[in-house]
């Protein structure tokens, strides 16, 4: 048996354009791969279908006559959307699904620190106890995941980005962008304008209890007005950047900014 050895010198992501001559919007049908077991958790990746059928052009392209209608199948989600409260394409869930790009780090609060950086210099660093001594803010907000679930009225407690800046005597943010760095290697970029004025906080409690590791504990970034992948779990470092750099998902197919109200899910949207 011959073996084929394929060597890689790939230094950047390869963008491949789908060339399958499939007349339906089916090109974008993601596979959820939740076996006969938990299709509740797997329900998130049908993103493009709602969009594809939302626009007249998409309707014209999609030859619906050829797609077999599954008699009696209807989406429960669309019945639940409350107009104005939930961004387009989202449905409300009472679950709190866990989505992670890697294994859950288990960090003890006594080992945790949070750093605020500009270039090579440390603007501020807090231990768990020092962080707890900062002004605490509790907010109740809706959160929206790019995989289409929205959770309404979630309550979080932590320290606002404004209060972090105050704690290190920074009146004006040091640069326009922040990269959040997390245990496990996850990163996400957020404009500082989307963190100040109460828009962002580093949260340590959810619904009054310490955030569970699977949900990002001991601390996660919370930027609820953007898609929830920006609310980075296991945050450890907030690094000011002069120029915007793309984080984990932003550099791999997903939108750089991620406004749910504009349905900015993917790069190119």
């Amino acid at each position: 048996m011959r073996t084929c050895v394929t060597q890689f010198a790939v230094t950047s992501s390869m963008l491949l354009y789908s060339s399958v001559p499939d007349r339906q919007a089916a090109r974008f049908a993601p596979s959820t791969n939740q076996r006969s077991f938990d299709d509740r958790a797997g329900a998130y990746n049908d993103v493009m279908f709602s969009r594809a059928h939302a626009t007249p052009e998409a309707k014209a392209q999609t030859s619906m006559d050829e797609t077999p209608i599954s008699r009696g199948f209807r989406s429960r989600r669309q019945e639940e959307i409350s107009k104005g409260r939930v961004p387009p394409g989202q449905y409300v869930t009472t679950d709190f699904p866990v989505l992670s790009a890697g294994p859950t780090p288990l960090i003890k609060p006594e080992d945790w620190t949070l750093a605020l950086q500009l270039g090579g210099s440390l603007l501020g660093k807090w231990t768990w106890a020092e962080f707890a001594a900062l002004p605490q803010t509790t907010i109740t907000t809706d959160i929206h995941c790019v995989t289409k679930w929205s959770k309404l009225g979630t309550t979080w407690q932590g320290v606002t980005f404004d209060d972090l800046l105050k704690a290190v005597d920074i009146a004006e943010p040091a640069a326009h962008y922040i990269m959040a760095h997390c245990d496990g290697g996850y990163t996400t970029n957020v404009p500082v304008a989307d963190l100040v004025a109460g828009k962002g906080l580093v949260a340590t409690r959810y619904e009054g209890l310490p955030i569970l590791p699977a949900h990002g504990g001991p601390a996660r970034l919370l930027v609820p007005h953007l898609y929830f992948w920006k609310s980075a779990k296991w945050v450890r470092r907030l690094r000011f950047m002069e120029k915007d750099e793309r984080g984990f998902w932003e550099s791999f197919g997903y939108h750089n900014y991620g406004d749910p109200w504009k349905e900015q899910r993917y790069d190119g949207d």
Partner: peptide
């Protein structure tokens, strides 16, 4: 092996899952 199945509602809404 498994398969992916896709259901389509009359309004065009679709849902997809994998089943062994």
């Amino acid at each position: 092996q498994h398969v992916d199945i896709r259901l389509t509602a009359e309004d065009g809404y679709q849902a997809q899952r994998s089943y062994s």
